[in-house]
Computed example of a mutant assay.
Amino acid sequence: MSTKTRLRAATIGGTADDVEAAFYEALQRGDVDALMDCWADEDEIFCVHPGGPRLVGADAIRSAFENMFGHGGAIHATPARVRKVESLASAVHNVLERVDVLTTEGRKHAFVLATNVYHKTAQGWRMVAHHASPGSAQEPGDAPEAPQTLH
């Protein structure tokens, strides 16, 4: 299914999964317009890139992705190991992203942990938050994670 078809499906009653697939396809193509079509038309949408500041609003998010695409084209991030919490009007997806980058030493990959939040809006399912954190240079194993204390 093409991105245009997925976005159309999302607009007329598709799923958060459809929007997520369109978001990652737009990243891989470096298509900022298609990427921004995945976002809700709300003032308080936000995005956090690994190690970056919180970007609030469509203009700030668009500008950041235009800058990223302008310095290397597409972002080759492939989602995997999606964990979902869903309800009638919202969905939260925790995603392990494999990011492939071309370095002077050849193609390398790293992993990023991302949380994508979707709301069902009048326009269909749309992303309202994308928060990505640095992962590791190696794919995490399938073993259950040990509990961690945050404070």
Rank of each mutant, 00 (worst) to 15 (best):
S2L: 05
S2H: 10
K4Q: 12
T5R: 12
R6K: 14
L7N: 07
L7R: 11
R8M: 01
A10W: 03
T11R: 06
G13T: 05
G14P: 02
G14N: 07
T15S: 15
T15Y: 13
A22P: 08
F23L: 13
F23C: 04
E25L: 13
E25S: 13
L27G: 03
Q28D: 12
G30K: 10
D31L: 08
D31V: 12
D31M: 09
V32I: 10
A34F: 05
L35F: 07
C38Y: 03
W39P: 00
W39Y: 12
A40C: 05
D41G: 00
E44M: 06
F46D: 09
H49W: 05
P50I: 10
G52H: 09
P53I: 01
L55F: 01
L55M: 10
V56S: 09
V56A: 07
D59L: 14
I61Y: 01
A64H: 10
F65Q: 12
E66V: 15
E66R: 15
N67M: 14
F69P: 05
H71K: 13
G72I: 07
G72N: 13
I75L: 15
H76D: 12
A77D: 13
A77R: 10
T78P: 01
P79V: 15
A80K: 04
A80T: 15
K84F: 01
V85A: 09
L88N: 11
L88T: 07
A89Y: 10
A89P: 01
V92I: 15
H93M: 13
V95I: 15
V95R: 04
L96I: 00
L96W: 08
L96R: 12
E97I: 09
R98Y: 03
L102Y: 00
T104H: 08
T104G: 09
T104Y: 03
T104C: 00
G106L: 00
K108P: 00
K108M: 13
K108N: 02
H109G: 01
A110E: 03
A110W: 02
A110G: 14
V112W: 08
L113K: 03
L113C: 08
L113R: 10
A114I: 12
V117L: 14
Y118A: 11
Y118K: 10
A122V: 02
A122N: 09
Q123Y: 00
G124K: 02
W125Y: 10
R126P: 02
A129S: 11
H131N: 06
A137C: 02
A137Y: 10
A137V: 01
P140F: 07
G141H: 08
G141F: 07
A143Y: 04
P144D: 12
P144H: 06
A146W: 01
Q148N: 00
T149A: 14
T149Y: 06
L150F: 07
